[in-house]
Simulated assay, not measured.
Amino acid sequence: MPRPAEPGRNALLDAGADVAARNGLAGLSVNAVVQAAGMAKGTFYHHFPDRRSYVVALHRRYHDELTTLVLAAIGELEPGPARLHTGLAAYLDACLATRGTKAFLAQSRTDADLLDEVTARNQLVAAMIAPDIEKLGWGNPPAVAHLVIAMVAEIALAELYSGAARPDLRAALTALIDRTPG
């Protein structure tokens, strides 16, 4: 069982975020991580039983950081359009500013080790935004929330590859979700 977070574990996670940002998930080997951290390979296995558990921990850490930024942005806003728009903008801005977005947003979709993590995170976020979707008058808020998450992920990737926010895509998303259903 992995040890609790401590300087060594956190140093390995920091190093892995750097490696993933540079080389993607495919380049995220144990050797690359320990070399970047300046640690012995045995230290890695002292904190993580295998590469898979390490990648899962790294993915969780990345998304926990994004979630913290989004929750800070929405603060005490009541469910509804303002909270949804604020949260989506905060998420997209954080994806642009956070290292590892390509690895943990794009590449994680096809990494078998992360499939369960991606699904669980998407379900969690869908549950968080479903009340906002409901306030907009959409039927079946969980299904619409799922689709909104997919659209936001695509926008985040388009922004990542262009290196800047895409106001056109953000406006199109807003127009779609604000549209009166039916």
Rank of each mutant, 00 (worst) to 15 (best):
F48H: 08
P49A: 12
D50N: 15
D50K: 04
R51N: 06
R52K: 14
S53R: 15
S53G: 01
Y54N: 09
V55H: 06
V55D: 07
A57W: 08
H59E: 06
R60I: 01
R60P: 01
Y62Q: 08
Y62T: 05
Y62P: 05
Y62D: 05
H63I: 01
D64C: 00
D64L: 11
D64Y: 02
E65Q: 13
E65V: 13
L66A: 09
T67V: 04
T67N: 08
T68K: 09
L69M: 09
L69K: 14
L69D: 08
V70I: 14
V70Y: 00
L71T: 04
L71S: 05
I74L: 00
G75W: 02
E76F: 01
E76C: 03
E76H: 11
E76P: 01
E76A: 15
G80I: 12
G80K: 07
P81T: 14
A82M: 11
A82H: 13
L84G: 09
L84T: 10
H85M: 14
H85C: 08
T86W: 00
T86L: 02
A89W: 03
A89G: 01
Y91G: 06
L92K: 00
D93T: 13
D93I: 06
D93P: 03
C95S: 11
C95M: 13
L96I: 08
A97H: 09
A97T: 09
A97W: 04
T98V: 07
T98A: 13
R99V: 10
R99D: 15
G100H: 07
T101N: 10
T101D: 08
T101G: 06
K102P: 01
F104A: 03
F104H: 15
L105N: 12
L105R: 15
Q107R: 03
Q107V: 01
Q107P: 02
Q107D: 15
R109Y: 11
T110V: 12
D111E: 14
L114K: 07
L114C: 06
L115Q: 13
L115P: 00
D116W: 05
E117S: 14
V118N: 04
A120D: 13
R121K: 10
N122P: 02
Q123C: 08
